[in-house]
Amino acid sequence: MGAIVAQLLHAALSSATPIALAAFGGMFSYHANVFNIAMEGMMLMGAYYAVYGAYRFGHWLYGMLFALLSGLILAGIFSLFAIVLKVDEFITGIGINMLALGWTTYSLRATFQVKGAFISQSIPAIPKIRFPAIEKVPFLGEVLSSHPFLVFVAIAFAFVCHVVLYRTKFGLRLRATGEEPTAVASVGLSIGRLKLWSAVLCGIFSALAGVYLSLGYVTLFSENMSNGRGWISLAIIILVRGRPMSIMLMSLVFGLLENLGMLLQRYAVPPQFTAMLPYAATLFVLYSYARRLKSA
């Protein structure tokens, strides 16, 4: 029983990571009062370019570089439309998600000559970290050991983002942009530039989530492989009102649920039902959030 629980937690940590990373990205936009829903597309693009760079140049670092560049480009497009041209943020987000889906599906076909998924032995994955010291500890060792390092980066980011948001000048200005833009403008700061920064951070974090998805969680790229994770991260941000620690915690809950499904599959529950769990859970969390609002 203990072994199963340890396995479950290990897997939960693993599937919570992309959701948490994307949610950290969206969190900056949330605080700047930018309704950014492009995490899904940025994640997908990051996942594609991670595989592209890593496969082409033979090292996962190139994958990360390419993915981050793709995230920056999408952030640039988002800013161009939403901030400069003043297109509705929601519409821009949907446009970017479609752009990412269309471009990755097309490139997959045009570059790798495959439909559906690109799988190869020669895609270098992100190295897994082992802690010799912790590995000996019976339960903890099994949960924490041999994860791709991005898992720990995500956990560390929960603290870093907290400090950045609530203890730095930048964080204060960002939150002020969201709450009272005129106050920010009155002290001579550019609202557009702060919003641009929030978009750039969203691009970087979502791309990292993509890297983890295609080089850490699995080592392949398949069409539309983000599969709604960006939307789930958006739901989380709204639910916890953009608090970094709570984002990490909620992501873990979702990771746990996703893998509870895997566990249920052993007891002959059809895979289609277990695959529904994270989405059903989002609905349920939304429901309990609404209940809490009502009683408050």
């Binding site: 003043k86 297109v87 889906l101």
Partner: peptide
């Protein structure tokens, strides 16, 4: 490949809303 059209479609959407909103601004 035919998948190109999905990409073309999203470019059209973005340029359309961009032009519309940009012209107004």
């Amino acid at each position: 490949p035919s998948e190109f059209v999905l990409f073309l479609q999203s470019i059209i959407v973005l340029t359309l809303v961009g032009t519309r909103s940009g012209l107004v601004s």
